[in-house]
Amino acid sequence: MAEHAEYKRPLPLPDEETAEYWEGARRHQLIIRRCQDCQYYIHYPKARCPRCRSANVAGSPVSGRGRIYSYSIVHVALAPGFEPPYAVVLVELDEQSDVRILTNLVDCPLDEVRIGMPVEVVYHDVTPETTLPQFRPTRAAEPHRHFQPQPAGNADVAQRPAQPPTREVHG
């Protein structure tokens, strides 16, 4: 997805540890650092594996599928270019549940966001140099191995008062 030229939102500034992630995003690949000895995914990327202490680590492609661990609907102006309300979600990846990606949820009405919702990555080319991985509700028919439908009437949803009707995601 190509974005308009005047992109006002904050852009990531990659560093030595994170360049592989952002370069992967430019190629429309989700690259997570992984221990090449014990196969543990290390996110945020670090020079050593926190599980086995190996320094043999490298970026590794993942499926880009996961589910929502938690979410927030932001109603105040937190950064240039964001028009509230918008959804900030924490996605846990199918490959390893403690790999979490903070992202926006796009292509989903705000009142349909739920914990446990299956999501998949979609790439937004926001400038010629930068692509942001974003997530949207999973469209493929293939079921998620982790997803368990949440029972109706969860406190986090049921307690929410009625909201204005114009609750579209600003992705």
Binding site: K8, R9, W22, V76, A79, P80
Partner: peptide, 20 residues
């Protein structure tokens, strides 16, 4: 713009505060 350090993971998504 741009957002460096730990904010690179969060600020591009408007999710870079203790509030969020």
């Amino acid at each position: 713009n741009p957002a460096g350090t730990s904010q690179q993971w969060t600020a591009p998504y408007g999710g870079h505060t203790i509030l969020t």
